[in-house]
Design a binder for these strands. Structure first.
Lengths: 222, 222
DNA sequence: GGCAGCCGTTTTGTCGACAATCTTGTTGAC
DNA sequence: GTCAACAAGATTGTCGACAAAACGGCTGCC
């Protein structure tokens, strides 16, 4: 009877949340920036009530911080907090890869293996990072889908919102893209073989490696 | 200058969220129950605007589901979704225990080892589950604190909100409390020895075991 | 009896207004 | 010149009102 159409709420507040999330994630609103209810309400031609409701969601997602009577500002992450995220990220991404392998046929990763072939090497060598970042995003999506675990996907999304821009800056670090590409190829190879445990191990190693670059070049990234 | 007093926002909306969270977590509002803005606003003597803002937070926490023009209801989890949570829970709790051990002295767990001694065995044998559940909650808090990772703590809290009541029902299942106690003692013993890797392994085994009970007795629990 | 359509009621969506609080700029005393 | 007190403006907190949509019961038709 109750048709379980999992309608994504087409609430206008949800749209608002989506846009603001995106802006915060890509540092269009910089960390520490103050978010004025009036400005946002004006820009989107909505009342402050809707903006405030959106802020409620943003706050509980950990993207903004609100202080009573003093407004909302984009959360600013220091190195310690970033490391805390990486600790969690490592195991979550590992789990995600493992589940993805367990839940799908090895052949299904073939196209990704190909896309991370010689062409990608050339792109990275030439510093054409947008291509690389785009493919990484694709792998991320495909893996999360295949893992077939909405709770995990949601958590990874949340982490992604907070680290996306930082990741971009890490990728540009000297030597990082080349090393990262090697690691991603290794992970994909394991996935292609259907070796879930190995893929998980390699993925975790990949995240740890990324973390080390962050640690080493923190002053350039944060 | 900017004293970084991390004031927990004393916003009344946040209080509202806390109360509603708690009610949902302990099934005072049953899964699937409809949440009327007017009723809640009336009960707390606040306007609907504040209730709506709280709903925004609750929704992005995954505790309620809102459908445009049709209101909000408490999320109802089926077995599949519960398993998805358990997959994540297993690795997160494992990580939490590992970090807790790594970040603190082995002696610091002594009091918990004691509290899970003979007395607790007797309690469980006599079906005095409240004592047991209370101690489990204590271990949970202490471990999360010691892990020293706010991101992880937040995720575990979120999971806890969604599974607390189910956990209670699992504990009451025939044989579960006794088996669970044995497992918790093993985990604590490893923590007391300072063996982080072992503690993590045992904790994960513990969660898997709990999951199996859920699977076996799903009709009684869900 | 069953069902489609209508209508009043309930509930949600949205908004603007007002009060409380904070911020900023100015004045004036020392 | 420095600092405190004050005042004006800006920003957030809260509320009630109105519009739009969904719900529920009733009527009347077949």
């Amino acid at each position: 009877m109750a048709k379980t159409t999992q309608h994504i709420p087409r609430n206008s507040v949800n749209d608002l949340v989506k846009v603001l999330r995106e802006r915060i994630a890509q540092h269009e609103y910089q960390p520490g920036a103050k978010l004025l209810e009036n400005d946002i309400a004006g820009e989107f031609n909505v009342s402050r009530a809707r903006v405030r409701e959106a802020f409620g969601a943003l706050e509980s997602r950990g993207l903004i911080q609100r202080i009573p009577n003093r407004g909302a500002e984009v959360v600013r992450l220091n190195l310690t907090q970033m490391f805390a995220i990486y600790e969690v990220r490592e195991i979550l991404e590992g789990l995600c890869v493992r589940l993805a392998v367990q839940n799908s046929k090895p052949e299904s990763w073939q196209d990704l293996v190909v896309q991370f072939g010689r062409d990608m090497e050339r792109h990275v060598r030439n510093g054409e990072y947008e291509e690389y970042i785009g493919k990484l995003e694709l792998v991320r999506r495909r893996t999360a889908e295949a893992a077939h675990n909405p709770v995990l996907a949601e958590m990874l999304d949340s982490i992604n919102d907070k680290t996306r821009e930082i990741m971009r800056r890490i990728i540009i670090l000297p030597g990082r893209a080349a090393e990262g590409l090697k690691q991603h190829r290794a992970v994909l190879a394991a996935m292609r073989k259907g070796d879930a445990a190995l893929a998980e191990k390699l993925k975790r190693r990949n995240i740890r490696s990324s973390r080390e670059f962050l640690e080493r070049f923190q002053s350039f990234v944060l």
